[in-house]
Design a protein around this nucleic acid. Structure first.
Lengths: 131, 131
DNA sequence: TAACTTTTAGTAAGTACTTACAGAAAGGTA
DNA sequence: TACCTTTCTGTAAGTACTTACTAAAAGTTA
C-alpha cells in the first residue's frame, strides 16, 4: 500500500506499527505536512488555548485568508486532531477545538514555536553574523 | 523594520526581545517556515545523528532532489542552525553539522516527528473513523 | 582520451500553495 | 426591500515550491 522503492530499514510490518518520516512513501509524511504547514502550526497552537469559532481563529492568526484557514482546519480535522462542531443556525456558528490526539501534537508544535519566539534575537544575530 | 499593519499585542520593543508567530510581519514566521519546511524538518533530525556529507543526507532523506536539499541547507545555514565546512578538494567534500542553536531546534523538531511516527497507527485509525 | 568522482548553480517546466473576490444560506433589522 | 450576520465554496490569477536536466571543477582510473 505504501513503500515500494524506498526501503531503507523499515519493512511493511514495521510500517504498520510505527511511521518512518525518512521513507518517501510513508503516510506519516502527509501528517507531518499538515501539522507543519504554514497555518497548521498556528491553528494548533491557537486551539491549545481553548475552543475557537472560525472568525476568532482568523482574527488571532495574522495573515490567514478564509480559504486557507478553512482548508487547514479540514486537514487537521481529517487527521483527527481537530474537532468541529457545527450548530445548524443562520448565520452559521461553528466551534473548533482539539481532540486528545490534537492536544498532544499541539504541545509539541507549541514547544517548537515557543522556542523560536524566545530565541529569535539569537537567530537574528546569527543571521547577521555570516550575512 | 518589521510590523507596521499587524499590531496585535506586540510593540516594537517586544518584537526585539521575543518573536510573535501570530503576527504576520514578525521575522519568526520566516524562521518557522524554514524549520518546518518539507525538507527542513528531515534535515534537522538527520543532522542530530551527527555530521553528514551532502550525499549522505540525500541518501538518508528519501525523496529529496539535490536542488531542494541544497536550498534547504542554505536556509538553515543562514538562520544559524547548520554549520557548513567545505574542504577545497576535487571532487568537492563538504560536511554539514548542527550548531548549538541548531541542536536545540533539532530536538524540538525531532520530538514532533517522533510523536507522529509513534502515533501514526492512531492517526490512521482516526482518519478512517470519519472518512 | 573517456569516464567517474562530489557538490552546487542555473534553467525551464510542472505542480502545489495562496490570495482576492464573488456568492450562497435564512432570518433579523433599518 | 436592502443590508447585515457567519462560515464556507468555487473561480481565476499569482506566487512559491519542486523536479528534471545540463554543466562545471580537477584529478584518478580504465
Amino acid at each position: 500500500m505504501a513503500n515500494q522503492e524506498t526501503r531503507q530499514d523499515e519493512s511493511l510490518s514495521t510500517l504498520m506499527e510505527r511511521g518512518n518520516v525518512f521513507a518517501a512513501q510513508c503516510p506519516s509524511r502527509e501528517v507531518l505536512k499538515h501539522v507543519t504547514s504554514r497555518w497548521g502550526v498556528l491553528v494548533l497552537v491557537a486551539l491549545l488555548g481553548g475552543t475557537h469559532r472560525f472568525s476568532d481563529l482568523r482574527r488571532k492568526i495574522g495573515g490567514v485568508s478564509e480559504r486557507m484557514l478553512a482548508q487547514t482546519l479540514q486537514w487537521l480535522e481529517q487527521d483527527g486532531f481537530v474537532l468541529r462542531i457545527s450548530y445548524p443556525v443562520v448565520p452559521p456558528h461553528v466551534e473548533y477545538s482539539l481532540t486528545p490526539l490534537g492536544q498532544e501534537v499541539g504541545l509539541r508544535v507549541e514547544a517548537l514555536a515557543d522556542w523560536i519566539q524566545e530565541k529569535l534575537p539569537n537567530i537574528l544575530a546569527a543571521q547577521q553574523a555570516d550575512a
